[in-house]
Amino acid sequence: MMSFVLLAEQVLNGLQFGVMLFLMAAGLTLIFGVMGLINLAHGSLYMLGAFAAAAVAAATGSFLLALLAALAAAAVAGVVVEVAIIRRLYDRDHLDQVLATFALILIFSEGTRWAFGSFPLYLDIPSTLSGPVRLPGGIDYPLYRLVLIGAGLLIALGLDLMITRTRIGIRIRAGENDREMTAALGIDISRLYTLIFALGAALAGLAGALVGAIQSVQVGMGEPVLILAFVVIVIGGIGSIRGAFLGALLVGLTDTLGGVFLPEALKLVTDPASAKAVGASLASMAIYILMGAILIWRPTGLFGGRA
């Protein structure tokens, strides 16, 4: 029998997963929206953030320093990659972008394996944030995951305010609408692009470090997240931060709740063993079925204006 407590816990888990997906998807959707670039190597920046955090935490013992290291490492890697390679790809077709960023994944992944080895690293949750906390309704929930939800929501709000209210946000939206006109108005487009790429990279690196503390830090950890972030963007509509936020929560909740409740629901119609097997298979497909359904309904996503 499903209890309220279990349901509430799973909804919170789904939210936590969703806001972390948002951090990935936000960078991807900004980079696509403004520069028209599809960046497969975004998952590598997530991985890089997690490894930087694990290395700094192991050396200093400070979680805060580890997070700063993750942000810095991913942002610096973002700037270097943008200036050296990505910049040459803005005028190319999507095929070239896919291949070049696929090549970057190979370089990042094997480079990390070479530097850190094939064994996973572990990043500990700081002691002040570990342990459960009692929520109203008698739910015991891990404090760290609750902090992740809060941090993710704060960053989402901050990004939205930045895009809609600040000067830099106006420039980003201007760059999205009309690149030549923005440049003609005296805005250094190429610096703006580097900045946006670095911002997206930093968000991915931060997500990698934050999630790295509840999962293991290993080579290739960014790729499943990258593909889920693509699903998020397809659902939300490319280029839309709000769409990315809604899409991320939908995907996070569908994946988490589907994994728990589909096998349970199937137990009502079939025997427990096959319910578990079929339920697990169906749950792993749930978000893609959601994506397919949304595509039939709105081919350019919930908030997307153009194909």
Binding site: F32, V98, V231, I238, L295, A307
Partner: peptide, 8 residues
């Protein structure tokens, strides 16, 4: 869809 949507 087309373009980058198709890839994703």
């Amino acid at each position: 869809t087309s373009g980058v949507y198709f890839i994703m």
